[in-house]
Design a protein around this nucleic acid. Structure first.
Lengths: 150, 150
DNA sequence: ACTTTACCTCAACCTTACCTGAGGTTTTAT
DNA sequence: ATAAAACCTCAGGTAAGGTTGAGGTAAAGT
């Protein structure tokens, strides 16, 4: 029988709006943990629900599971993470989000310039090499051909 | 011998900062076109350079190759696309970019609220179901558990 | 003329983030 | 007691956006 504090995989899946297979997958990736009952079925503590919410929020921000795993690794190991812990996490992601927003704004503004000149790749085009503020965030510098005009 | 107007795959790759294999890939996906010389080697018109620049810019904006292909399909078929054509394209992507930015801003602001409450998944949390303005852009509504507090 | 560099095709492989199905066990409901 | 629902593992598949390598041809440099 399922006790209040022990959630089955199906329950967790339903409450979080994910498939059971996703929970298996997250567990295999080390993002969530479970223990087993007598019949070898997974049981979860309630804080798995928050973890999954966090994962989903992170994904919306463009954060990969690897990155999520990395920050989860900094959560307290023994005690259940509390509000402070999650808040710290939010704060760091908020900054990433700000950078991403700033980057896209820069791109958009470049594009605005391009509408005027009809380009996207010409010399004098503002989108040409727009100092990549995301740095090593996986987005490389625009490499455009200087002779691409016709 | 390579005439001015006929670019080889290696030249295009070098000028655009992409691999030759990427050009093969784009061609296979219908994003760029080439014809062959006597020896069966690919030759490109100069406007392929701009196309590739556009593809790379689009990717930075989070636009998929499929979407790029779709807008390329609306470029004039017979004549070489001119500034006006590219400008129209920029304009439409600029709007997408604006939506994406607005979405991320909303997420960020929700996160700001969450820092205060230490949540990310609790009832009363602003990130809980933040009307998804990107709609069917591949980002579903946040589905969070209302009972996820401890 | 000969060698190196560039190019060709096709198949297979990589990463991220999962999903699907087969074959079998456990729980739960009736 | 039995059937249905839920669970298990493990292998293989999907999509996007490419990369890598094998085996062979073409073009360029000397």
């Amino acid at each position: 029988m399922l006790e209040e504090a022990n959630l089955s995989v199906g329950i967790v899946a339903k409450r979080c709006g994910v498939n059971v297979s996703t929970l298996h997958f997250y567990e295999q990736k080390g993002l969530i943990r479970s223990w087993r009952n007598q019949g070898n079925q997974r049981r979860y503590k309630r804080d798995v629900l928050r973890r999954i919410s966090v994962i989903k929020a992170a994904q919306k921000m463009g954060i990969s599971l690897e990155e999520v795993k990395a920050v989860f690794a900094q959560l307290p190991n023994q005690r259940t993470p509390d509000k402070q812990d999650w808040a710290k996490l939010s704060k760091s992601w908020q900054q990433q989000l700000n950078q991403r927003i700033a980057y896209l704004e820069k791109l958009r503004d470049s594009l605005t310039g391009c509408i005027g000149c009809g380009c996207l790749s010409m010399k004098n085009c503002p989108i040409y090499n727009p100092e990549d503020i995301l740095g090593d965030s996986g987005v490389g510098a625009l490499i455009l051909d200087k002779e691409a005009e016709e």
